[in-house]
Simulated assay, not measured.
Amino acid sequence: MKLQLIRNATLRLAYAGRVILIDPYFAPKHSLPSYAGRSNNPLVDLPMPVEAILQDVNLVIVSHLHSDHFDSVARARLPKDVPILCQPGDEETLRSAGFVDVTPLATALHWNGITITRRDGSHGLGAVLAEMGSVMGFSLMAAGEPHLYWLGDTVLYPPVLDTIRQTAPEVIVSHACGAYWGEDLIVIDAAQAIALCEAAPLATVVATHMDSLDHATVSRADLRAAAKAYGLGDHRLRIPADAEEIMFPAPR
């Protein structure tokens, strides 16, 4: 498996002979409104042209329709016939945008030798969920590839820990920017990222969704410092830069 962080939550995965694009967010720097009153978003430009991001993509997964996970530029630039997986409830919005091959991921499906399983997430806890709405994570499994668990926009809460305990993923992708909506934490922060690593001592955790939005409270530098203070090695917690690629070998 080859994982490439594009920016924010957007990833390209080369997995089981296919290329999967996750949460396409293509907006130019400072072209969208602020979330926290600090700066227009995104804070940085894409690290490569949209054409390069879309090259050879076989499947797009859209975890939810917040503008930092699926924006108007992605809506315009994605081929209308590209297969899209989404959470149930978002399919009609995507179809109304002209996409013709949209499948809601209710539980699990098998696609070109890959098993894709929906996982629960909670975009905060308590009353803020009425504003945040539903989200999803997912797992990928295929012969000759590591088992990947992509958490999505969630805090660390019991269903995430249950999934780790029950499925023993080898690679976990976590959004770890500590984003807040008002007074509420809505995405894993540094302390929760470290707790996530401790809950999965045999997995490699890849931290993304940092240094790109103005309501985040945890930068890459912050997370590295927290991990170092806790004694976590680089093999346990990877913090890629935008456009960085990480290779993961086939499981033994």
Rank of each mutant, 00 (worst) to 15 (best):
H64A: 08
L213F: 07
H64V: 02
A229R: 10
S63Y: 02
M141A: 08
G182P: 15
S34C: 06
G98S: 13
D90L: 08
M136D: 02
I20T: 02
R75T: 06
N112M: 15
T115C: 13
I53R: 03
Y149H: 11
N112W: 09
T167W: 00
F99M: 13
V57R: 04
R77A: 10
K2W: 06
A229S: 12
P42H: 02
A250W: 00
A106I: 15
D101L: 13
H110A: 12
P42I: 09
E131M: 05
D184N: 14
H64P: 02
A191N: 12
I164F: 01
A16I: 08
P251Q: 05
R77D: 03
G137M: 13
S63A: 06
M132F: 03
P33M: 14
H64E: 14
E131N: 11
A27G: 00
I84M: 02
C197I: 13
A203Y: 00
V173R: 00
A229T: 06
L151V: 15
W111E: 09
V206H: 00
L129M: 08
V57H: 00
T204H: 03
I61N: 04
F26I: 08
R220T: 04
V100D: 03
H110T: 13
S134Y: 09
D120G: 06
L129D: 04
S34N: 07
L161A: 10
